[in-house]
Amino acid sequence: MIEALEKVLLSQGLLAAFVIVGVIMLVSEAASSTLTRGRIHPSAIAIVIGLCLAYLGGRASGGEKGLADISYFSGVGLLGGAMLRDFAIVATAFDVDIREAGRAGLVGAASILIGVLAPFVIGAGVAHAFGYSDAVSMTTIGAGAVTYIVGPVTGAALGASSDVMALSIATGVLKAVLVMVATPALAPLIGLDNPRSAMIFGGVMGTTSGVTAGLAATDPKLVPYGALTSTFYTGVGCLLGPSALFLAVRAVTGG
């Protein structure tokens, strides 16, 4: 009986991963609506659960690939691997409407650029202060401070070590969670009450889950405007992170 179950889980790992992630999402949705009254977006909770499972998996296996190092859960490695990750990220660009984007105008584009550069510099600087002084690690952690997508995409492209990747993702996840939680409280202070400021907000914060969840908790009408600019943000980050930003860091650090 158990052997037959093991065989199924091992030979059809990707399907097992669908079930695992599906259950995580279900638990996250329940936790989001009951424990946080919808204030923290389910996806943020799911990612935190994923990171916790990676910790437990890493502890149990002693490996570097979290849950994926436990053979029954190896399918998680395929589902969350580079191929499907990039595939799904590219797919999100499909919903961007160029004409709508044009209305955000120059300030929207500027906010994306500033919104990518500022966290990158802060993230890379803090990384340096904590002893991650090589260009690849600084760039990867700086990119993680941009979003938890830009971090691993950049890190994977530059061949960063897995612990730096995890730090990078953790920084991006913390950013997303803080944006979700702090936005409703800080919205009046930053004038976040109209479509234009929502577009600037989306461009500066960039983290789509943080922006959409934060705006939903502030004023649901503002969500599409913030999502519009934040959709570009990750793309701009993925474009600049492993290229211009990495070269800039390498030029500054000299290696």
């Binding site: 992630v21 999402m25 990612i47 499972l53 990676a54 690939k65 979290g66 969350g80 993702i169």
Partner: peptide, 19 residues
């Protein structure tokens, strides 16, 4: 599928080292 895939990606990171 982007969020579920990101969750799967999070679940295979070297969190032990990140902690």
């Amino acid at each position: 599928m982007y969020i579920p895939i990101v969750v799967a990606m999070a679940a295979q990171q070297n969190v032990v080292a990140a902690v």
